[in-house]
Design a protein around this nucleic acid. Structure first.
Length: 288
DNA sequence: TATCCGACCTGTTGGC
DNA sequence: TGCCAACAGGTCGGAT
């Protein structure tokens, strides 16, 4: 599934292939793909048509493109969800099986923007912007740790104040954005932290170390998977090369820990799975 | 108010 | 072989 590095690759692709162009005909082929656009698909298409795209922005896994001629100070907001792709395809190319939204351009370049999404967890929508230039609906989303303006000290303070556990905190988009289940497990393994460790017990050095590992995991993925924006198409296929080569925790149940050789464990967690090393990542003595 | 957790969705996998 | 349940997981919103 697209994680933050893949979303960044898509952002760069949009910046290169879509910025400065004007939307022509817009087709909404599946209503769920515009479910966050409360006025519905017809309104979405009508308002987007004729709008000129600015430079794509990103916060966490949300992408948005400022529009200069649709609703005043508005943006086209996108989230890829579990299986979403934004593709710039030649006009007339066969439709993808899960094509949800098609945006033609009012120019003669001969390409169109497509939103393709098998599981329809993602979608596109139009929103007004806050004074900060952020789509209003994502104003509550925290900055991601690759954002130069991310405040490490404030993150640590917020962690200490929460009465929750460390993995829940990593997945809390109002604390830190862009961390999904996979990267949370990877960063916790690197930091030798058990997922159920209460955040209130984390020292400042330990939370700084954890944050550093989150950044390392993301940067490594970006370095390995962030190549496709140089091609003609904005194309995230949902499979980062990083997943195949460099995972230390996620999906490795029963395989030896890359640090100590102990078989890795998997535990059901929040309708998901947590992968960890039972030796390197000891559970907290006092359960929260 | 803060935190928790089920629902949404569909292709794949594994068990019977 | 075929059927069905389990699984994957980001986000929202209702429940606690």
């Amino acid at each position: 599934m697209p994680e933050l590095p893949e979303v960044e690759v898509v952002r760069r692709g949009l910046e290169r292939w879509v910025a400065g162009r004007t939307a022509g005909e817009v087709e909404v082929l599946h209503p769920r793909a515009v479910r966050r656009h409360l006025a519905g698909g017809v309104d979405f298409a009508a308002r987007l048509t004729g709008a000129r795209f600015g430079t794509a922005m990103r916060r966490g896994k949300y992408l948005w493109v400022p529009l200069d001629e649709a609703a005043a100070a508005g943006s086209l907001l996108g989230h890829l969800g579990m299986s979403g792709q934004l593709l710039v395809q030649p006009e007339g190319a066969p439709d993808e099986k899960h094509l949800r939204i098609r945006i033609r351009f009012a120019d003669a370049v001969g390409t169109e923007l497509r939103f393709v999404d098998q599981r329809t967890f993602g979608g596109l929508s139009l929103h007004e912007n806050t004074p900060d230039g952020l789509p209003d609906i994502i104003a509550h989303i925290a900055r991601d740790p690759l954002d130069p303006a991310f405040d490490d000290a404030a993150f640590h303070t917020a962690l200490r104040l929460r009465r929750t556990t460390v993995k829940r905190a990593l997945l809390d988009q109002s604390l830190i954005s862009g961390v999904g289940n996979i990267y949370a497990d990877e960063a916790l393994w690197r930091a030798r932290l058990h997922y159920d460790r209460p955040t209130a017990t984390l020292t400042r050095p330990k939370s700084a170390e954890l944050l550093g590992h989150v950044r390392d995991v993301m940067n490594a993925a970006l370095a390995q998977g962030g190549t496709s924006f140089d091609s003609l198409y904005v194309n995230v296929n949902g499979e980062s090369g990083y997943f195949d080569r460099s995972l230390d925790a996620y999906g490795r149940e029963g395989e030896p820990c890359h640090r100590c050789g102990t078989p890795m464990a998997r535990r059901p967690w929040m309708n998901r799975s947590s992968y960890y090393c039972p030796r390197c990542q000891r559970p907290p003595r006092v359960r929260p």
